[in-house]
Design a protein around this nucleic acid. Sequence first.
DNA 1: GTCGATGTTATCAA
DNA 2: TTTGATAACATCGA
Length: 275
Amino acid sequence: MPELPEVETIVRDLQKRIIGRKITGVTVPFPGIIANPVEEFCKDLVEAHFERLHRRGKIILADLSSGATLLIHLGMTGRLLLVPSSAPFEKHTHVLLNLGPDEHLRYVDVRRFGFLLTLGKNEVSNLLEGKKLGQEPFSIPEQEFCERLSTRKANIKAVLLNQTVVAGIGNIYADEILHRAGINPLLRAADLRTSQVKRLYRTMVEVLTEAIERKGSSVSDYVDASGRKGRYQDYHRVYRRTGQPCITCGTHITRKIIAGRSTHFCRVCQPFTKE
DNA sequence: GTCGATGTTATCAA
DNA sequence: TTTGATAACATCGA
């Protein structure tokens, strides 16, 4: 489940290792994972150098010397791995980029919810605008965050998962952020008091920052580009801790489907009442 | 054989 | 037009 901290970890790891390097060949064992015509995709990539690597929400963006940008979304189970060419060929490997004779950048994705795509410069901003992707949690001003929540009548859990409100939060971090803020996931966003929204803003930044420091959460099969697991799962206070005692008050953690997703929270620390 | 895991989007309804 | 609720997608492991 790559969310913002996992994607950020992958980008930072790869920045050190692929900037300036040339893509000498492209193989696409499963073309269905490529969102533009495969011929175009390969043409944009072959012989191009990686010039810049960055992230927008959960999307990885690689600017290439060909003028194109390679855009990668990992979906639920996508993994981007930088491995020796001789590394065993994993099942569900859908794309291979040769970086010279010795190394591969491989895209592996069991459930195939992810995708890869090459776009021109303008097309990238068009796509992000078209998706109406929200601001980054680290750059949205507090006041704007408050304003965006104030018009939302959906429950706060759904609003945090909504990528058009703020980009990058998924199921794990939505639960962790709400617990730390002491806010019940079922409360409507617009009903939250200003003090609650401010606390939510602060804990959002705190939780995501700490998760990045711990290199993300490895709850299913997440690993970074070097195959290393994250450690933030060891610091989860609610996510997948159903029935276990709340770190704060000892009450057992409740699990309930909210916004169509497994939601974990403490009934006592996150009461269903406004302050 | 069934269910649960989740990011995104299509679809429908208001 | 916008928003919200829900199902569907895909595959594996329990």
